[in-house]
Nucleic acid binder design. Structure first.
Lengths: 235, 235
DNA sequence: GTCTATAACGAGATAGAC
DNA sequence: GTCTATCTCGTTATAGAC
């Protein structure tokens, strides 16, 4: 029984993966708005109703693709973070930013799925939140590391933003100064502005040496959050 | 004959506007990927072939909507810029950024059309460039104003970025220091990161007081570009 | 219980004849 | 410009194989 159940489970995992792979292929070709369960089934030699054993609806398939994309991005970012262990927080920040950019360039359609325009008629359920938070948590961790090592220059905050900054800090990182958390959230959004503009073509005929341009912008973002670069090298 | 021709021209303009209005409505409901000439025609009580007298293809209709969106955004930004005449460049910068944000919040689907994921199978022609450049030109103008008034703190550039910064400056604003141009392009992209995150829901349960958060982030962007705030008030 | 296949629904797009 | 015949879609009900 154990082997039979194992075989069933294995087959189920394989078919699920095949469905998602084919769906990703269609994502690239047609976009998320035109993702079609029937087309996926047809391409796999299945009948459309059979897909419902694996995904209860088209939206559930979309949700699975979104979570996979966030997880894939999160893994790349976490790998870059781990690889940079021992380096100054500002360097680790840049390393993670560059990993985000590289993942986006190698997975443009999945990037568009999670950070591009919302899919009409689809609204992401709360189950996507943990995967979506991975990169943010990594960035918070880097700032925390700097804070503990006294390598964080805390930004001054205008009085009007202080309540909001306190609220964000309480939610996201109660051990960090509110000013740093507010700056971090802004930098997080701005990082995706840089990536999105490059990926979606706004830098066409504007920025040519994009890796270098991005590296410098990521540097400046780290600086804006209060991460101090080692004296010997920069800043 | 003059009146007849005038009437014809007027009718043509009216029908063209009606087509674009209906197309915008569908953009909101279905997304750009699903924009269908037939559906537009049906809704207007026309037959699909009649639409081709006004737009030779779906892509041409899309292009017209994109140019309209860029122009509408550009007008809003330019109006905010004009209204801020006399203020310090840093203040004008923030005013323009806030106008971009407000336009995006009131025109979410048109924002998604121009700054969101690319429409699969569609590639924007060069004719969209002038409209797309309006906000960028405005920001360059603000930095230029500061530079002329000696209110621009030019950012130091790492040696690796200098050739690219020079190239960008030669293309975009030969009268400005390359460092300022590079910082400006980055800030421009980052501005849209902030706007996109708010609009596309990434700030859900993260940022609550979004106007204040955005204003502060725009302030910091101005600072990053080298715009100096009047001593009496901020910085 | 787990899965696939057949058939069907209502809605909408599409192509072509007229 | 109109009509119709034929596609697509998401989804469900049902029946039967393993």
């Amino acid at each position: 029984m154990a082997t039979a159940e194992g075989a069933r489970a294995r087959a189920r995992i394989e078919v699920t993966a095949a469905i998602k792979d084919e769906a990703r292929r269609q994502l690239a070709a047609e976009g998320a708005a035109r993702l079609s369960l029937r087309a996926v089934a047809r391409e796999l030699g299945m009948v459309s109703s059979a897909l419902y054993r694996y995904f209860p609806s088209r939206d559930d398939l979309l949700t699975a693709l979104i979570i996979d994309a966030y997880d894939s991005l999160g893994e790349s970012a976490e790998a870059a973070h781990a690889k940079s262990a021992g380096a100054a927080p500002a360097r680790r920040w840049v390393a993670v930013c560059e990993a985000v950019r590289e993942w986006a360039l190698t997975h443009p359609h999945e990037y568009a799925l999670i950070y591009g325009s919302p899919v009409p008629g689809y609204s992401a359920p709360e189950t996507t939140v943990p995967a979506a938070a991975r990169v943010g948590l990594l960035l918070i961790g880097i700032v925390r590391e700097a804070h503990r090592g006294r390598g964080l220059a805390v930004a001054k905050l205008p009085a009007e933003l202080e309540p909001e900054a306190r609220r964000m800090a309480a939610d996201l990182a109660p051990d960090l100064p509110p000013g740093a958390v507010a700056a971090l959230v802004a930098a997080w959004a701005q990082l995706y502005g840089l990536v999105g503009f490059e990926l979606f073509g706004q830098f066409h005929k504007v920025v040519e040496d994009r890796p270098e341009f991005f590296r410098h912008a990521a540097d400046r973002l780290a600086h804006g959050v209060g991460l101090v670069f080692p004296r010997a090298e920069a800043d």
